[in-house]
């Protein structure tokens, strides 16, 4: 079952930017695209764990700030020659607030 948790106002994340969500186990990052779509991913590139929240957001992709891996915000899959995947989490915007489905996050902690 989904557990929608209010993360904060949409305006707190810049367009084509991201903010970190401190989470049990591993930090997440919430991204906002130029057309106000939001995505939540684990804040670590599969390659050497670069903080994706600090990457350049283009379209629905983010580029790892350390080694230029390009990660899909929609699927978490690495693009091009690189192979790897980051976990993604359901997230949505309602009434100008960002809501994150935290059910799987807490399960992860419990496991």
């Amino acid at each position: 079952m989904s557990t929608w948790t209010d993360i904060g106002p949409l305006d707190a994340v810049r367009r084509r930017g991201a903010r970190i969500i401190k989470a049990p186990g591993q930090d997440l990052a919430v991204f906002r695209t130029i057309d106000d779509q939001v995505f939540a991913l684990v804040n670590a590139c599969p390659y050497r764990q670069g903080p994706l929240s600090e990457g350049i957001v283009h379209g629905t992709l983010v580029t790892d700030p350390l080694y230029n891996w390009v990660i899909s915000l929609e699927t978490g899959e690495a693009q091009g020659a690189d192979e790897g995947r980051v976990d993604t989490f359901p997230v949505k915007v309602e009434g100008g607030r960002i809501l994150l489905d935290t059910s799987s996050i807490y399960q992860r902690q419990a496991a």
Binding site: G8, A12, V13, I20, I21, K22, A23, L28, I98
Partner: peptide, 14 residues
């Protein structure tokens, strides 16, 4: 300065 902070802390909530 706020942009340098996490937007939320789920560790505390948990």
């Amino acid at each position: 300065a706020d942009q340098y902070e996490p937007i939320a802390n789920l560790v505390l909530e948990a």
